[in-house]
Design a protein around this nucleic acid. Structure first.
Lengths: 135, 135
DNA sequence: CTGAATCCTTGTTGATACTG
DNA sequence: CAGTATCAACAAGGATTCAG
């Protein structure tokens, strides 16, 4: 993990437990912000799906990134992975209660963005209109 | 911007406005998850601060990354940048109402992580205890 | 003091190919 | 079907240097 950060926070007088929380917060926030997590969680919100079903439903994701995303989600217990011992193999992914809860929290932020979408976009335009000419 | 994503979403039958929202959501989520944003917003929550004050208060951040973070935040209108025409220069950064609102939303997620911290950590341990031996 | 420019290291993403 | 391994491209992050 990012032990450097922990050391720095410790040096700054932050309690270890709190430091771990900060790392974890950033970790989860970063995960929510990565390219595929939100789409995966959203896709699974309607019910369990197989790997291929997810791959088809989420346009543009590579097998590799879908696999990584799913693995990370599974590791944190946000998603369950159920492999059925059959031929051909069948693996189903489903949201856990924790994952659903996480999805709700993210949805909260999504709603915020939707509400402030116009304002943010306008701010960017204004900023880009003023600043870019370096001189 | 990520026009590739937009094209893909369009191909998938997603409305352009919705596609923009998705990009923006991921953008803001990614920003929240980056290494310094949350710390900057938190630091500014107590009131305006100068560049150097922020640099001192946030242990471990480089001038470069602090500058980048501040610039991104300013661009979105989450933070104001007030340069006083003095010698030596003095620049103050402050949260806008929008920035404060954003901070509240992020705080919501932070609280979620704090509440589920133990569970997530336990899940990870269990996962790492079972899976790693590849064979 | 504030912060942009440069250079370098590292981590992330994705295409492709291969295995159980 | 459900992935993992490998490799190449790229972006993020950081140290240092330069400038207004």
């Amino acid at each position: 993990m990012d032990s450097t950060l922990r050391a720095r926070l410790a040096a700054a007088g932050v309690a270890p437990e709190c430091a771990t929380t900060i790392e974890l917060v950033r970790d989860l926030l970063a995960r929510a912000g990565d390219k595929w997590t939100v789409l995966v969680v959203t896709a699974l919100a309607d019910g369990p799906l197989r790997f291929t079903a997810l791959h088809e439903r989420i346009a543009g994701v590579s097998q590799r990134m879908l696999g990584h995303t799913l693995r990370a989600l599974t590791r944190d217990g946000l998603v369950t992975r159920t492999a059925h011992a059959e031929v051909p193999p069948r693996v189903e992914y489903a949201l856990t209660p924790l994952g659903r809860s996480f999805g709700d929290t993210v949805a909260h932020t999504v709603r915020w963005v939707q509400q402030h979408r116009t304002e943010i976009l306008r701010n960017r335009e204004r900023f880009d209109g003023e600043a870019p000419p370096t001189g």
